[in-house]
Design a protein around this nucleic acid. Structure first.
Lengths: 181, 181
DNA sequence: GGCAGACTGGACCGACCGGTCTAGACCTGT
DNA sequence: ACAGGTCTAGACCGGTCGGTCCAGTCTGCC
């Protein structure tokens, strides 16, 4: 099982998990290495800039998974609200399963040593999510302005609700997000 | 100016500022000490449990300031929406001034070493905010269920918008929060 | 077989981490 | 003057941090 994935992917996977629950600064390189069952040399071979590079890769992977979640939620929906509801319920389930972690992008990238490249990457990923939702909103007949407003509102509600859910350790508030759209 | 405040308050002030912008794990004790112009002995005299105690105190102070901001925003308002609008604009201004930091509670308490006491404190502070807003909502005639829903919605929107504002380094999204209530 | 490059393994480094400890400065009441 | 508590001051500690370095191993190609 350990070698089911190549070392590089195991590192990203481990980093994604650990950063998500303890934040960039809350996880040591040694911890990631132990979780990924990889030696130090491998890390610095695959990611020359070490922890920082790995963090970006981990955030990118997390972002891709979120994008996929959005896509499948809206693919089978019959309305914007229906898609949003499916997405929120899927996120609530994920929230329960992973044990109340934070938004992986925020945890990984909004703490980095120098904000410049990290923050830019984070912004790009967030805009990617909003853009994806926006496309679906347009597909359901909303005009450009409405689609942008709706997708932004959904993003904001999910982020805020996730935070409150984490504080309360209760995913209910996430499930109730679509009711307020 | 350095001694305008007693050492303990200077420590809390410095910790609040630094934790808010770099997170609990992103700030070293030495850094806080330098900012507060205090020696190590003073820290461990005023806060026997060191960094952890200081973090809770800093979060508490930040929470109190937020509570005050809510109070004055709604005090002079003529409707719930009016108060929410004032609050959001005040927060946007604060956001611009402090330079795109995170929610101080989240940054300080949701990364702590063991989640138990930190998370409980954070939850309590969040509930305090929501409770305060809820009181004002009731005052404007909303029934209990409506007041709770409205205050929770406002909290969620502010948290989510703040996060997006941080990623974009632009407080506009915060100012637009009340439009969606 | 022999070679080159990709990758692994881990010893090692200086810097910094949070925390302890003791010495003394300072204030207050007697 | 003295005593006792409060607070300041910073040297010092073991541990851990992220990162470097290089010898060794595996792989595919000639």
């Amino acid at each position: 099982m350990t070698d089911a994935l190549p070392t590089k992917d195991r590192l990203i996977q481990a980093a994604m998990r650990l950063f998500r629950s303890h934040g960039y600064n809350g996880v040591g390189v040694a911890e990631i290495l132990a979780e990924a069952k990889a030696p130090k040399g491998s890390l610095y071979h695959h990611f020359p800039n070490g922890k920082a590079d790995l963090a970006v890769a981990a955030a990118q992977k997390a972002s891709d998974e979120m994008l996929r979640l959005i896509a499948i939620s809206f693919a089978e929906a019959e309305s914007f609200k229906g898609g949003a509801t499916t997405l929120c319920h899927k996120l609530a389930k994920l929230f329960d399963k992973t044990g109340w972690d934070t938004c992986p992008i925020a945890a990984t990238l909004f703490e980095g040593p120098n904000n410049a490249p990290f923050r830019a990457a984070g912004q790009h990923m967030y805009d990617g999510w909003i853009g994806e939702v926006q496309d679906h909103a347009s597909r359901f007949g909303l005009d450009a302005a409405g689609a942008e407003a709706q997708s932004e509102a959904l993003f904001i509600a999910i982020q805020g609700a996730w935070m409150l859910a984490r504080a309360r350790q209760d995913s209910d508030v996430l499930r109730r997000v679509p009711d307020r759209l």
